[in-house]
Simulated scan of single mutants.
Amino acid sequence: MKILVTGGAGFIGSNLVDKLISLYHDVVVIDDLSTGRVENLNSEAKFYKMDICDKDILEVFKKEKFDIVYHMAAQIDIQKSIKDPINDAMINIIGTINILEACRKSNVNKIIYSSTAAAYGNPNYLGIDEEHYKEPISFYGSSKLSSEYYIPVYSRLYDLDYTILRYSNVYGIRQDKNGEGGVVSIFLENIMNYKDVTIFGDGSATRDYIYVEDVVNANINSIEYGNGEVFNIGTGKYTSVIELFGIMKNIANKNIDVVFEDERLEDIKDSYFEINKSLSMLNWKPEFCLEYGLRKTMEYYESKYI
């Protein structure tokens, strides 16, 4: 199939592109390289350096004639969204509408959209299922949720199939320090450089950390399964920040200390997913435990430092 990955030079997007190419799909990447990196690009993918808000994107769609569009390009930094909500909305809402318009005008069969646990806000109960009330506490969460609402309308009006995937805290190779799972890469950079790690609050806050390869597999399954549905993509398990640090410290076998700072108001205390819907309807399940994923991630970054 002919497949587009927006944000295909980024963390999750580039891992997905590699997998799609290994499955013999014809892959095109659109990325403005504002956060994505040239070195992440697969040489077998065709690349367009473009902003997703660029109106000329339609010409790319008409030329390439995509079957499937993975829309992963986004502004993912919660702190940046709070400092500059207009820019966040332009990328995450207007950019998504621009992609949807291009899908409509070029007869794309299906769009697979990367969303976020930030759409839920502070949970009323744990684990969070797909029906949980949604009340984002950041502009990032609000903009991603807004785009979720546009997609089913395009589907009803223009017969565009879709699947929406809400990720928990994704970590793995090629991740930078921004985004919801960025705590792993922040800790990792400090550990590699023998620097103390900063934890906001007392370290008891919990998250659902999922390895990037599991997220890629959920995206692959979304080609065939999950039409017209929204899915939580996580492990269904929770780990505290201080536990996460302990696992990483043990794997690295380095003597690193923790510096505790005041809790940040915009941070959610506890969050993890209930994933039964993904297990049953997406024909997917997470395969990699946290220690395995962290070990693979740390081995990758160690090879970069050496």
Rank of each mutant, 00 (worst) to 15 (best):
M192W: 04
S142D: 05
Y225P: 08
P152I: 10
D196S: 14
M248I: 04
L244R: 01
E213G: 12
D129N: 15
T239M: 02
R174H: 13
D176Y: 09
K177R: 11
M192T: 04
R156H: 10
D196G: 04
V170E: 07
I199Q: 06
N219K: 03
S271G: 06
D161Q: 13
Y154T: 12
S271T: 06
L160G: 07
E243H: 05
G246E: 07
N193M: 09
N219H: 15
K144F: 11
N221L: 09
P152K: 10
K269E: 11
L165S: 06
T235Q: 01
K134C: 15
F139T: 09
L244C: 02
K177M: 12
I186S: 13
D196K: 14
N169E: 07
V241N: 00
D262G: 13
V230P: 02
I173W: 01
S147Q: 09
Y150C: 14
K144N: 10
Y211C: 09
S147N: 09
Y150E: 09
D159W: 05
T206S: 11
I199V: 15
L160R: 06
S185W: 10
R264H: 11
E266P: 00
N169I: 00
I268C: 05
G226L: 05
I137Q: 04
V215F: 08
K144V: 09
R156D: 12
I186V: 15
Y162E: 10
V216M: 02
D262I: 07
S142G: 13
S168Y: 00
G181H: 10
Y272G: 02
I191C: 10
N232P: 06
E148M: 12
G228H: 07
N227I: 12
S204A: 05
I191Y: 10
I251G: 04
N221V: 04
F200C: 11
M192H: 10
G172K: 03
K177C: 11
G246F: 00
S271W: 11
S222W: 03
D161F: 02
N219L: 05
R207V: 04
D267P: 00
Y211E: 03
G181S: 13
E131F: 15
S143Q: 13
E266L: 12
Y149L: 14
D202R: 07
I210P: 12
I199A: 12
S168V: 00
G234T: 01
I199T: 07
G172C: 05
V258E: 01
D267S: 10
L188E: 08
D176W: 06
F200M: 08
V212I: 14
S185Q: 15
I164W: 03
V259A: 00
R264I: 12
G234M: 01
I151Q: 09
S271I: 13
I186N: 12
D159V: 03
V215I: 13
S138R: 07
N169W: 00
S222Q: 02
R264A: 06
E224K: 15
Y272V: 03
Y150T: 07
V170D: 02
D159M: 05
K254D: 02
S240W: 00
